[in-house]
Nucleic acid binder design. Structure first.
Lengths: 152, 152
DNA sequence: GCCATATTGACAAGTATAATGTCAACATGA
DNA sequence: TCATGTTGACATTATACTTGTCAATATGGC
C-alpha cells in the first residue's frame, strides 16, 4: 500500500511536470530561433515537412493536432518567407503538396541540428537506458490518458 | 556515435511528448471536474493550498509561475464559491492568508483522490523503478532546459 | 517614529494561440 | 452527372494568460 502510493504519486508528479517541461522546451526553442527569421509556429511546419516529407495543409493539421484553418495561417507564413512552396498534388487537384525549398530545408536542418546538440549536452550524463525508459513511460502515460478522455 | 545519436533523439522525443502529455492530462483533469463546479484554474488554487497550506496570493502566483494579477482572479473565484476564505496574516497586514474552507478541503481531496485512482489504474503495470527513473529524467531535463534559457 | 520604497488588490487593456463559423470554388466518387 | 465532401480564405470568438497602471497601505531602514 505504501509503495503503491509512492509510485502513484511519482506518476502524478510526472504528469504535473509536463507543463513546466513544455514551457522550458518552448523557451529553449524560441531562444534557438532568435537569430533566424523563424517563429516557433513556422518552425513546427518546417519540422513536419522535414520529418515526413511533402504533405497537404490538412495533413499537417492532423499531424500537429491543430485545426486546419490555423495551420493554413502557419503554412502561409512559410510560403511568404520562401521556406516552402506548393507542388502539384497528384492525389488532390485543389490541395497542393507543401514542400521545403532549398532554403527552408537548410534552415530547419540547421535549427534541428543545434537543438540536438543542446540536448546532447544536457543529456550527456544520463544513462541511455534511463532515457529509453523515460520515453516509454511518457508515451504510455500519454496514450492511456488520451484513451481515458476519449474512449470512456 | 550511433548510440549517442539514438539516445539524443530519444531525449528529443521526450521533449516533444511534453505537449501531448500536457494536453492529455488537462483533458483528463477537466473530465474529472465535470461533475463538480470547479474549473481547472480554481482546482489549481485549491491544490496548492491543499499541498502547501495557507498562502497569500503572491505566494500562490510564485508557486504556479503565473502573474499575481491573474492568480488574483483565480483566487477570487474560489472565494466567491466559498471554497477558500481569507485569514488574517500575521506577517502581512494587507495580504491575507488564503485558506481552504471545509467545503473546499473536502472537494479538492476528493478530486485528487479520484485523479490518483485513475493514475493507479493507468500505471498498474508499469514497474515502479521505471516510473522513478522517468520522473528523474523529466525533472533533470526540465531543470537544465530552464538553466539554458535563463542562465545563458 | 518617520519616510522613502515596496507590496498588494483591483481594474483595464493587450497579446498569443488557438477554435469555430461560414462561404465559394471546386474536386471526388457513386 | 450530380450530390456530397474538401479546401482555402476570411471573420469572429475564446482562452489563458501578460502588461500597465493606480491608490492604498504596509514595511523596513534610519
Amino acid at each position: 500500500m505504501y509503495i503503491v502510493t509512492m509510485q502513484n504519486s511519482e506518476l502524478y508528479q510526472i504528469v504535473w511536470m509536463s507543463r513546466p517541461l513544455m514551457q522550458a522546451a518552448e523557451a529553449a526553442v524560441e531562444q534557438g530561433l532568435a537569430d533566424t527569421d523563424l517563429t516557433v509556429r513556422m518552425r513546427a511546419v518546417l519540422e513536419v515537412l522535414h520529418a515526413e516529407g511533402d504533405m497537404t495543409v490538412p495533413d499537417i493539421a492532423a499531424r500537429l493536432d491543430i485545426k486546419r484553418q490555423y495551420v493554413q495561417v502557419m503554412v502561409n507564413e512559410t510560403l511568404t518567407s520562401g521556406l516552402t512552396r506548393q507542388c502539384p498534388n497528384p492525389r488532390h487537384k485543389r490541395s497542393p503538396l507543401l514542400a521545403l525549398t532549398d532554403t527552408g530545408r537548410a534552415l530547419i536542418a540547421q535549427v534541428i541540428e543545434r537543438e540536438m546538440a543542446l540536448l546532447q549536452t544536457i543529456g550527456a550524463d544520463l544513462p541511455s537506458d534511463d532515457i529509453s525508459t523515460a520515453l516509454r513511460v511518457v508515451r504510455m502515460l500519454t496514450e492511456r490518458l488520451r484513451e481515458e478522455s476519449a474512449g470512456t
